[in-house]
């Protein structure tokens, strides 16, 4: 059976279709870096300045890795790729909004936090220039949260967990999950400093935390689990590299 619509019916159908389409286009695209132009000039510059030493440190570290530990370069590239993949995946969260994981924790656990400043910066640049996600004026602040603060937290938490003799895979998972969460907490603080409103920095921080950090909790758990999975696979197939960077000790699996 062939259904034929009259002209006015078709028009009605067209209008009906247009509504959800325009609504979809009006929904602010992107997920969670600080949006272009939403930090005052002074703060945008300041965050950029804060990141600069970390990026230089990262570049120097990467240079050292390439020169002294040639065979781990593949591993470093894979860590960058991991951050690339994870930060492209916008995931639904239990509070009805979406956000994406950062993926910078795993590399920090393996190579230390410094190289991730560079790798994270590349991801952020890609998203700011091509996808209008984040922005060039907020690049410094976003680099600080995702490529400096997050990796440092992951690295520190991993070290702490190992000191407390937590199982290695669990330590990787916890470290990467908390690093992810830390990134969004830092973002909230940055936004609160820029937009204290009338209620003050603390009150507006609570507001932003409600938006970013709550959304991020389930995603942080997912990132932790995925990072542990990748680490399990690396431990099975990349033992020589993991020994080379000192992640596994030379003799056995005890670090």
């Amino acid at each position: 059976m062939k259904t034929r619509f009259t002209r006015s019916e078709r028009r009605l159908l067209g209008i009906a279709c247009a509504v959800p389409l325009t609504a979809a286009l009006c929904v602010p695209a992107g997920a969670m870096h600080i949006m272009e132009g939403f930090l005052p000039q002074g703060q945008a510059l300041a965050w950029g300045a804060v990141c600069l030493p970390f990026v230089v440190w990262g570049l120097l570290t990467i240079k050292k890795v390439i020169r002294q530990h040639r065979k781990t370069v593949l591993l470093l590239a894979m860590m960058g790729a991991y951050a690339f993949v994870l930060s492209a995946l916008k995931m639904p969260s239990v509070f009805g909004s979406s956000s994406h994981p950062t993926g910078t924790g795993l590399g920090a656990v393996l190579f230390g936090p410094a190289p991730m400043a560079v790798l994270g910066l590349i991801v952020l640049l890609f998203q700011a220039v091509l996808m209008a996600h984040g922005g060039l004026t907020t690049l410094g602040a976003n680099t600080f949260s995702m490529a400096v603060a997050g990796p440092f937290v992951s690295f520190g938490v991993y070290r702490l967990c190992r000191k407390l003799r937590v199982n290695r895979m669990a330590a990787v998972g916890i470290a990467c999950g908390l690093g992810d969460l830390a990134t969004y907490c830092v973002t909230s603080v940055q936004l609160a400093l820029a937009h204290p409103g009338e209620a003050g920095v603390l009150a507006s921080m609570a507001e932003f935390m409600g938006v970013f950090a709550l959304t991020q909790i389930p995603l942080a758990i997912v990132e932790g689990i995925l990072s542990a999975v990748v680490m399990m696979m690396l431990e099975s197939f990349a033992k020589p590299e993991l020994r080379e960077i000192g992640f596994l000790s030379k003799e056995g699996t005890q670090a």
Partner: peptide
């Protein structure tokens, strides 16, 4: 609709800092 969390943050900014105007736009 599971919109992005940064969109929600824009709304929060509009609420607590209603006079704020973004001073830059994405180049593309």
């Amino acid at each position: 609709e599971f919109g992005g969390a940064d969109g929600a943050a824009e709304e929060v900014i509009a609420q607590i800092d209603p006079t704020y105007e973004p001073w830059a736009e994405n180049i593309w």
